[in-house]
């Protein structure tokens, strides 16, 4: 299990990176934290002509608040996020999610951009940006575009990033006032990718659910935003009955597959159970926060 040969580049800027990517015309791979790509190289399941290492590009590492969003440079380490006071105060749900990403020693190197660009169907960050309506900022030699999760995650390990293009920033809206949230995941062991995970953020103003955000992952090739579930909550509130109905609807909306760890039916069932748990917890929290 040793990597195949490749050319290695360590550019210092995004422009330099894009220039190198352009030279290889889709045959180069970007190396972020390496927590997935290095394993794939060791298994020789990936054999790019070149690796372009983003670790020496300082401009890709930052967390800042801007325009009602937290903006993360693609190379921001998961560990930085986990211990960021800014994230803790503006988007605590993300801390909860981050603690479920692998283990502390993998979060040391693992990055938000790497996780999102790798697009594992059960990974935490893709589910989080999908639920919270985040944005992916992609850059290429021809410019910058901002892509919404529904357009970004195309299926198992597949994204909208085009050859010659790179993910440079991830944007997630900060927590609205009067909100509660939850990240519920079921995995066979701690630190594993989830069998199913549900992310939710509920905003309740004067007893009315003004904004519900619910996404599921592990239930198909890409995380799915469950808009019809959100509509039930926005219409009927976050009481027990509405949550029951919303959870049942969630299970109808997903289209999971079977694998070694769980059957499709079980995943569908878990979607219902975890949606109910997530919504119940979030609703409880929002009541406490109000």
């Amino acid at each position: 299990m040793k990597p195949p040969p490749f050319e290695y580049h360590d550019p210092k800027t995004v422009d330099e990176t894009l220039a190198i990517l352009g030279r290889y015309g889709g045959e180069a791979r970007l190396l972020a934290g390496g927590q997935s790509l290095m394993a794939l190289l060791n298994f020789r399941l990936a054999s790019p002509a070149a690796l372009v290492d983003l670790n020496p590009v300082p401009e890709l590492s930052y967390i800042r608040e801007e325009g009602g969003q937290l903006r993360f440079g693609a190379m921001t380490r998961q560990r930085q996020i986990e211990f960021s006071p800014l994230v803790a105060s503006r988007l605590p749900l993300m801390i909860e999610a981050t603690r479920m990403v692998g283990h502390l020693p993998t979060r040391t190197r693992g990055t938000i951009g790497g996780s999102i660009a790798h697009a594992d169907p059960a990974a935490e960050y893709p589910a989080l940006v999908t639920a919270l309506d985040g944005e992916m900022v992609l850059r290429s030699a021809s410019g910058t575009r901002v892509v919404k999760p529904a357009d970004f995650f195309k299926g198992f390990f597949t994204t909208a990033i085009a050859p010659g293009e790179m993910l440079v920033e991830v944007r997630i809206p900060v927590t609205p006032a009067h909100s509660g949230w939850a990240f519920e995941e079921f995995s066979r062991r701690h630190g594993d990718f989830a069998i199913v995970e549900i992310v939710t953020m509920l905003t309740v103003d004067n007893g009315r659910c003004t904004r519900a955000r619910v996404a599921a992952s592990g239930v198909g090739g890409a995380p799915v935003r469950l808009r019809p579930v959100e509509e039930i909550l926005e219409r009927d509130g976050v009481g027990e009955r509405a949550i029951g109905e919303a959870s049942a609807r969630a299970a109808e909306l997903v289209d999971p597959t079977s694998d070694l760890h769980a059957s499709a039916d079980y995943r569908r069932h878990l979607t219902r159970v975890l949606t109910r748990r997530a919504l119940t917890r979030a609703a409880l929290q929002v009541r406490g926060n109000n």
Partner: peptide, 13 residues
């Protein structure tokens, strides 16, 4: 100073 997997890094890094 931080724990990391040395099998998921290149020596050049």
């Amino acid at each position: 100073g931080e724990a990391a997997r040395s099998c998921l890094m290149l020596a050049v890094q």
